[in-house]
Simulated assay, not measured.
Amino acid sequence: MTTVAAPTEDRAKSAAGLRAAVAILEKWGASGEQAAAILRVSRSTYARARRHDPEWRVSLDEDQLTRISLVLNIHASLRVLFDNPENLYGFMAMANHNVPFHGRSPLQVMAEGGMLALYDVFRHIDSLRGGQW
Protein backbone atom coordinates (compact mmCIF):
# COMPACT_ATOMS: atom_id res chain seq x y z
CA MET A 1 0.00 0.00 0.00
CA THR A 2 1.36 3.40 -0.97
CA THR A 3 0.97 6.27 1.47
CA VAL A 4 0.58 9.73 0.01
CA ALA A 5 1.77 12.62 2.15
CA ALA A 6 -0.86 15.16 3.06
CA PRO A 7 -0.48 18.50 1.30
CA THR A 8 0.28 20.19 4.64
CA GLU A 9 3.18 17.78 5.17
CA ASP A 10 4.48 18.50 1.65
CA ARG A 11 4.33 22.25 2.27
CA ALA A 12 6.14 21.85 5.60
CA LYS A 13 8.88 19.74 3.99
CA SER A 14 9.18 22.22 1.13
CA ALA A 15 9.55 25.08 3.60
CA ALA A 16 12.23 23.19 5.54
CA GLY A 17 14.17 22.45 2.35
CA LEU A 18 13.88 26.03 1.17
CA ARG A 19 15.06 27.38 4.54
CA ALA A 20 18.10 25.05 4.40
CA ALA A 21 18.96 26.11 0.84
CA VAL A 22 18.58 29.80 1.72
CA ALA A 23 20.86 29.40 4.75
CA ILE A 24 23.51 27.73 2.59
CA LEU A 25 23.26 30.37 -0.13
CA GLU A 26 23.67 33.10 2.48
CA LYS A 27 26.79 31.38 3.87
CA TRP A 28 28.14 31.25 0.32
CA GLY A 29 27.68 35.02 0.10
CA ALA A 30 24.78 35.09 -2.35
CA SER A 31 22.79 38.30 -2.49
CA GLY A 32 19.03 38.07 -2.01
CA GLU A 33 18.57 38.65 -5.72
CA GLN A 34 21.02 35.85 -6.60
CA ALA A 35 19.45 33.41 -4.13
CA ALA A 36 15.92 34.12 -5.38
CA ALA A 37 17.08 33.63 -8.99
CA ILE A 38 18.96 30.40 -8.21
CA LEU A 39 15.97 28.93 -6.38
CA ARG A 40 13.43 30.52 -8.76
CA VAL A 41 11.33 31.92 -5.93
CA SER A 42 9.87 35.37 -5.46
CA ARG A 43 11.62 37.93 -3.28
CA SER A 44 8.79 37.66 -0.75
CA THR A 45 9.10 33.86 -0.57
CA TYR A 46 12.86 34.25 -0.16
CA ALA A 47 12.32 36.79 2.64
CA ARG A 48 9.86 34.46 4.42
CA ALA A 49 12.34 31.57 4.18
CA ARG A 50 15.04 33.74 5.80
CA ARG A 51 12.86 34.29 8.88
CA HIS A 52 13.20 30.61 9.91
CA ASP A 53 9.57 30.47 11.09
CA PRO A 54 8.96 26.76 11.84
CA GLU A 55 5.20 27.21 11.30
CA TRP A 56 5.62 28.63 7.78
CA ARG A 57 4.48 26.44 4.88
CA VAL A 58 5.07 26.88 1.15
CA SER A 59 4.03 25.10 -2.03
CA LEU A 60 6.90 24.59 -4.46
CA ASP A 61 6.88 23.08 -7.91
CA GLU A 62 9.14 20.29 -9.17
CA ASP A 63 11.63 22.74 -10.70
CA GLN A 64 12.02 24.64 -7.41
CA LEU A 65 12.45 21.41 -5.45
CA THR A 66 15.10 20.24 -7.91
CA ARG A 67 16.96 23.54 -7.49
CA ILE A 68 16.89 23.13 -3.71
CA SER A 69 18.22 19.59 -4.09
CA LEU A 70 21.08 20.79 -6.30
CA VAL A 71 22.08 23.50 -3.80
CA LEU A 72 22.08 20.93 -0.98
CA ASN A 73 24.10 18.49 -3.08
CA ILE A 74 26.63 21.16 -4.08
CA HIS A 75 27.05 21.94 -0.40
CA ALA A 76 27.56 18.23 0.38
CA SER A 77 30.25 17.99 -2.32
CA LEU A 78 31.99 21.09 -0.98
CA ARG A 79 32.01 19.56 2.51
CA VAL A 80 33.88 16.56 1.11
CA LEU A 81 36.36 18.78 -0.74
CA PHE A 82 37.12 21.35 1.94
CA ASP A 83 37.83 21.09 5.67
CA ASN A 84 38.14 24.77 6.40
CA PRO A 85 35.13 27.11 6.48
CA GLU A 86 36.87 29.76 4.35
CA ASN A 87 36.95 27.42 1.36
CA LEU A 88 33.75 25.56 2.20
CA TYR A 89 31.72 28.76 2.19
CA GLY A 90 33.99 31.03 0.16
CA PHE A 91 34.52 28.87 -2.94
CA MET A 92 31.12 29.66 -4.42
CA ALA A 93 31.76 33.43 -4.45
CA MET A 94 35.33 33.22 -5.82
CA ALA A 95 36.06 34.00 -9.47
CA ASN A 96 36.96 30.79 -11.24
CA HIS A 97 38.69 30.60 -14.61
CA ASN A 98 37.89 26.95 -15.28
CA VAL A 99 35.07 25.67 -17.46
CA PRO A 100 32.11 26.27 -16.96
CA PHE A 101 32.84 29.48 -15.03
CA HIS A 102 35.11 31.45 -17.43
CA GLY A 103 36.18 34.03 -14.84
CA ARG A 104 32.84 34.23 -13.03
CA SER A 105 32.03 32.81 -9.62
CA PRO A 106 29.86 29.69 -9.38
CA LEU A 107 27.19 31.87 -7.75
CA GLN A 108 27.18 34.22 -10.74
CA VAL A 109 26.88 31.32 -13.18
CA MET A 110 23.98 29.81 -11.24
CA ALA A 111 22.14 33.12 -10.78
CA GLU A 112 22.56 34.25 -14.39
CA GLY A 113 21.74 30.90 -15.97
CA GLY A 114 18.80 28.59 -15.78
CA MET A 115 18.44 25.08 -14.46
CA LEU A 116 21.13 23.83 -16.86
CA ALA A 117 23.69 26.29 -15.42
CA LEU A 118 22.84 25.16 -11.88
CA TYR A 119 23.22 21.53 -12.90
CA ASP A 120 26.52 22.25 -14.69
CA VAL A 121 27.92 23.88 -11.55
CA PHE A 122 26.82 20.88 -9.50
CA ARG A 123 28.40 18.42 -11.96
CA HIS A 124 31.67 20.36 -12.03
CA ILE A 125 31.99 20.63 -8.25
CA ASP A 126 30.85 17.05 -7.71
CA SER A 127 33.47 15.83 -10.21
CA LEU A 128 36.22 17.60 -8.23
CA ARG A 129 35.78 15.23 -5.33
CA GLY A 130 36.60 12.31 -7.64
CA GLY A 131 37.03 9.16 -5.62
CA GLN A 132 36.84 10.89 -2.24
CA TRP A 133 33.56 9.21 -1.23
Results as ranks from 00 to 15, higher is better:
L25R: 06
G131V: 15
G131F: 15
L116C: 02
V4L: 11
G113L: 04
G17W: 08
L88M: 02
E9S: 01
A37Y: 13
L128N: 09
M110I: 06
N73Q: 05
L78D: 11
L107R: 00
V121K: 03
W28V: 03
M94N: 11
S31A: 11
I68K: 03
T45E: 14
N87M: 10
H102I: 00
L88Y: 01
V80A: 04
S31V: 08
R50F: 07
A76Y: 00
L81A: 12
G29N: 03
Q64G: 00
A5C: 03
F122Y: 15
A30G: 10
A16S: 14
D63I: 10
P85W: 07
A15Q: 01
L116A: 07
A36T: 01
R104Y: 12
P106M: 05
A12N: 06
K13H: 13
N84H: 13
S31L: 07
L118I: 00
V109A: 07
S44N: 02
T45R: 08
G90I: 07
R104N: 13
A6G: 07
M1D: 04
V109W: 02
G114A: 06
S14Y: 11
A21G: 09
D63W: 07
I68C: 04
L72Q: 08
L88D: 09
L70Q: 08
L81H: 04
A93K: 15
H124W: 03
A111Q: 05
P54T: 09
H52V: 00
H75D: 15
V99Y: 13
M115P: 01
P7S: 05
P85T: 09
L18N: 00
A30Q: 12
Y119H: 11
E55H: 04
A49I: 02
Q108M: 13
P7E: 06
V99S: 15
A16F: 14
M1F: 03
R43N: 11
V41P: 08
T45W: 08
I68V: 12
Y89W: 10
H52W: 00
Q34T: 09
V80T: 10
L65Q: 14
